[in-house]
Design a protein around this nucleic acid. Structure first.
Length: 573
RNA sequence: GCCCCAAUAGCUCAGCUGGCAAGAGCGUUGCCGUGGUAAGGCAGAGGUCACGCGUUCGAAUCGCGUUUGGGGCUCCA
């Protein structure tokens, strides 16, 4: 029996061998090209090569050469050689020499090479027997990348590809990609009239009525949960004096990502985060230990100047709404509050059927605050995770400049991971803003602060939901919940009457009275992914009932209106 | 920001080895039809071919630049 793990290993071997074939093809066509590294990745493989820019035309040439090499069925031959011999063989390739040096430093006396006829590459293997084992190999995308991912280094060409033992599997792979494209939120967003983007503002989403319904429902839902947990809600301004951002440290650490403007000659910044405004609200009055923990939420619109190349539909935008909250507390309340947030996160994600996992990010390179503070805060996050028996991955050096964080990643229904929520512990911001509370001892103390989001960005979360549901939102989120379709002119009056009943019950309903065939109107509603289509005609008028067709094409006849309304109101809850 | 690719009607796309008036389907508008669970028929409107500059007798088509979008790199909610 072939286990999953073995299968994976086999794939990796095939893909890595494919990278060699790619390299061989490039070397045949461009003998001066310098190979660097060519690993197997999650889906396929790539090879980073120092060569001229790979245009479509060149890509096609390489593809043709690859097809030839596969036909030639050339053997992979392993050979062990000394470091010195390797240096000789790769003397014209500075990248490989650098890698050989590293191997030597790591204590290797010998290195391995793989040969295919007169082509050879530094590689520890293993490989397939011969190039003919690859049944189908297709180059996919091209990207410019820097050697060692450092923009000071030379730019290389990364050529990506995918391969399989046979053509059928290759076709299946591309079919699957086609399927995934069908749920692209940009496409569905247009079809369902949710949002748009315009040349006049790259990366700034425009929400249409249908999109706003979803956004508002998401806010309404979270607000209700916040209330249950005694959160307060505030709103802070979008433009504030630059001074504030200098004080908060964003000027030093985040300036590159901020937008600036002037008001009456005063330098101002558009907020990229909500916390500094929140600090001012806290500082407004004297707080007692009796008020703590103080949980203050804000649905805050923030603007960040993201690099143009990273913008991607709602997934990556330049202005978005954070479901931000700041919790001010005493040190001994840290654990209980983190537990509270984790429980809330779990509750919210479960509502959408998302599985989630956690990553812990530790002290970055240019942090605020002493090592001691970082240790205390990192430990408290970690200990909660341990106590709650939550598995987590550590991201070393990935924390915010003001504190360590826990990031929540959700998995959508086609298995993709998305970072959404985050909990960030912060000992430094309260200090910078001189926050205080009066303790039981009647002395002043500094509160500890916690930043957290659950959706992360309402915009991104919506994008994820659109793809997760493929536009078939659960009833409570569906922009239009019920569509009424009349059969014939005689049922117009009845259709309007039914419409009013739904409308008066706060159900999002539309009635389609157009002079079109029933089939046509059903198709239209179906394409809009409307959960319930209500059809009324002569039969329904006679019985004073309705006929219902669900999004999944289930038809129920002779349904009493009151009964149906009661059912869907329950479903919406 | 960097690399590759793209931009033609509201949408999806054809035309693009330079050459009559710019093409289709869907949508939209009007008329005819009055329908029973995924497209009824006919007719009309709709485009400075993203923008700017150039090459040419002539540019949607070729070149350069800009903008926007897509896929990567890097970054991130």
């Amino acid at each position: 029996m072939v286990t999953n793990l073995e299968e994976k290993t086999q794939k990796k071997i095939l893909w890595h061998s494919s990278a060699h074939i790619l390299a061989m093809a490039v070397k045949r066509l461009y003998p001066d090209a310098k190979l660097t590294i060519g690993p197997a990745i999650e889906n396929g493989f790539y090879y980073d090569i120092d060569m001229q820019a790979v245009t479509d035309e060149i890509k096609q040439k390489i593809q043709n050469e690859i097809d030839k090499i596969i036909k030639e069925n050339i053997k992979f031959v392993k050979e062990e050689i000394t470091i010195d011999k390797a240096r000789q063989m790769f003397s014209d390739n500075a990248y490989k020499l650098e890698m050989i040096e590293e191997l030597e430093k790591a204590g290797e006396r010998q290195v391995c090479i793989y040969k295919n006829n007169d082509f050879f590459d530094l590689c520890k293997g293993p490989h397939i027997k011969s190039t003919g084992v690859v049944g189908a190999l297709k180059l996919t995308k091209i990207s410019g990348v820097y050697w060692r991912a450092n923009s000071k280094n030379k730019m290389l060409q990364r050529i990506y590809g995918i391969s399989f033992p046979d053509k059928k599997q290759l076709r299946q792979y591309f079919d699957k990609i086609e399927q995934a494209k069908k749920r692209d939120h940009r496409k569905i967003g247009r079809e369902m009239d949710l949002f748009s983007f315009h040349d006049e503002g790259a990366g700034f989403p425009f929400f249409h009525n249908n999109g706003m319904i979803i956004k508002n429902e998401l806010i309404k839902f979270l607000r209700k949960e916040h209330n249950k947990m005694h959160y307060q809600e505030i709103q802070t301004p979008i433009i504030l004096d630059k001074k504030l951002w200098v004080q908060s440290g964003h000027w030093d650490h985040f300036r590159e990502n901020m937008y600036f403007t002037k008001i009456d000659d005063v330098d101002c910044a558009i907020k990229p985060m909500n916390c500094p405004g929140g600090m001012l609200v806290y500082r407004e009055k004297v707080h007692s230990y009796r008020e703590l923990p103080l949980r203050i939420g804000e649905f805050g619109l923030v603007h960040r100047h993201e690099l143009s190349g990273v913008l991607a539909g709602l997934f990556r935008v330049r202005c978005f709404t954070q479901d931000d909250a700041h919790i001010f507390m005493e040190e001994n309340q840290i654990k209980q509050e983190i537990v509270g947030v984790i429980d809330l996160v779990d509750k919210i994600y479960k509502k959408f059927g998302f599985d989630w996992n956690v990553e812990l990010s530790t002290k970055p390179e240019n942090p605020f605050g002493s090592d001691e503070i970082w240790e205390i805060s990192t430990n408290s996050l970690e200990s909660v995770l341990k106590e709650k028996n939550i598995n987590y991955k550590i991201n070393k050096g990935d924390g915010a400049f003001y504190g360590p964080k826990i990031d929540f990643h959700i998995k959508d229904c086609i298995g993709r991971n998305w970072q959404c929520g985050t909990i960030q512990l912060d000992f430094t911001m309260p200090e910078k803003f001189n926050l205080e509370y009066v303790g039981k001892d009647n002395a002043k103390h500094r509160p500890v602060m916690l930043h957290r989001t659950i959706y992360g960005s309402l915009e991104r979360f919506m994008g994820i939901l659109i793809e997760h549901y493929a536009g078939k939102f659960p009833l409570w989120l569906a922009p239009i919940q019920v569509k009424i379709i009349n059969v014939g002119l005689d049922s117009v009056k009845y259709a309007n009457k039914i419409y009013k009943i739904f409308f008066d019950n706060n159900i999002r309903v539309e009635v389609d009275l157009r002079d079109e065939s029933v089939g046509y109107k059903i198709r239209d509603a179906q394409n809009m992914k409307i959960p319930y289509i209500v059809v009324v005609g002569e039969n329904e008028i006679k019985e004073n009932t309705i006929t219902i067709r669900t999004r999944d094409k289930k038809i129920q006849k002779n349904i009493k209106i009151d009964e149906f309304i009661e059912n869907i109101l329950n479903e919406i809850k």
